[in-house]
Design a protein around this nucleic acid. Structure first.
Lengths: 223, 223
DNA sequence: ACCTGAACACCGTTCAAGT
DNA sequence: ACCTGAACACCGTTCAAGT
């Protein structure tokens, strides 16, 4: 008899586990992703997961790959710096819904095909703009870090929190900054709101703009 | 009788604990910093630490503050963008010996006096250059993230390792990249060495240059 | 092939107690 | 004030066993 008809097919799969883990990371932070919690939520023994993943790190790598799979590699643009911006934005777009899992992407960039493709094109455009290999490499690495830095967590505090706590938290922060001695930190106090509540789109845009502008003005072929 | 003469003075102190924890973080990574390990290395019960720190997070905050205390705030430079570069470099210099602990600095920037001073000056110079408060805030946050990104860990892999393992690891990575299909990733394969072994000074310099150049060219007063 | 069960060596933290 | 001791509710992982 075919196993698909009679026997219960395996309830678990790498995909199902990774999916659930990603949701947990999004909701409760990366440190809430636990083999044991994951197991009970999937109605299974902790050890069941070890059939599908050799270790917890492998599972986390699965999360990173899952994020990279969501990347839509953009059509090439003629102007090289603009193209760089598009590549960064593509990565940001995929990572943004999963800021927690995004932290895991770095070590997977040189393993996952999408990561490789993005890196390849970044390097190609940088060398095309006249950067020597060493400098191009350094800038490419910096680009990745910049993206991660932009996507990862809250600007002022990294502690994980539910959306519910968030407002209170921000207000608390603003109050804290506002209560600083204004004679010592005049600009800081005046900018309290801008520093804590900073609209995500403005923020992300600034990061990309900054990077692209910087690269452009450092380019050897820059007239 | 005075306690300083007869009785054994407390063997522990916040400073001693933080110092040992920092060494542990530098040597074996942040996740090796454990209340229990720390306790045994200090020849004391785990609970002894809870007299000096309310929780482990407070201890980790202590690590971050310890790093910020090493910052030498630079003398102001006339040209604003140059001054920004000096501020970034000062922070990088203090963080560089402790890449693991550096990750903890972000949430302490708006608490520790040195963090506040650096932020204040950054904002002041940005607004002085014509950026409006919102944009200045976004750039200041991005500056901090950039510094952290540059200082934190290995460019290609985040896994913690001893200096001994490091060389093998790099060679392995280069081999891995070199073995990729050269028709699909031509630039990548050609840059294998530059991407993995990238001299730290070049790398850090590139990051700062990039940021400063970007900010400068985005400045409203930019002629 | 896919999962369970029991066990091991770890965690952070609370609570009561010692000096 | 400063530290110990025992206990609790967690971890990741190994190893042997079930179906």
């Amino acid at each position: 008899v075919s196993p698909t008809k009679t026997a219960a097919r395996p309830t678990l799969s790498r995909e199902r586990v990774v999916q659930r883990a990603l949701e947990m990371a999004d909701d409760d932070g990366l440190e809430a992703v636990t083999i044991r919690r994951l197991a009970t939520e999937l109605s299974v023994t902790p050890m069941a997961l070890y059939w599908h993943f050799k270790t917890k790190d492998e599972l986390l790598a699965g999360l990173a790959d899952r994020v990279l799979e969501d990347v839509v590699v953009p059509e090439p643009v003629e102007e090289w710096a603009e193209d760089l911006g598009a590549l960064l934005t593509a990565l940001i777009t995929a990572m943004r819904p999963h800021p927690q899992a995004a932290q895991l992407v770095m070590p997977r960039m040189m393993v996952h095909p999408t990561g490789l493709e993005l890196t390849e094109r970044t390097l190609a455009r940088l060398t095309g703009a006249g950067f020597d290999p060493e400098r191009a490499g350094a800038i490419a690495v910096q680009a990745l870090r910049t993206v991660l830095a932009m996507v990862t967590g809250d600007p002022v505090d990294d502690s994980v929190m539910t959306a519910a706590e968030r407002d209170d938290h921000l207000r608390h922060k603003q109050a804290l900054i506002s209560s600083l001695p204004a004679d010592r930190y005049p600009t800081l106090v005046a900018h309290a709101v801008a520093l804590t509540w900073c609209p995500a789109d403005t923020f992300l845009g600034t990061g990309v703009d900054l990077f692209v502008a910087g690269v452009r003005s450092l380019a050897p072929d820059h007239r």
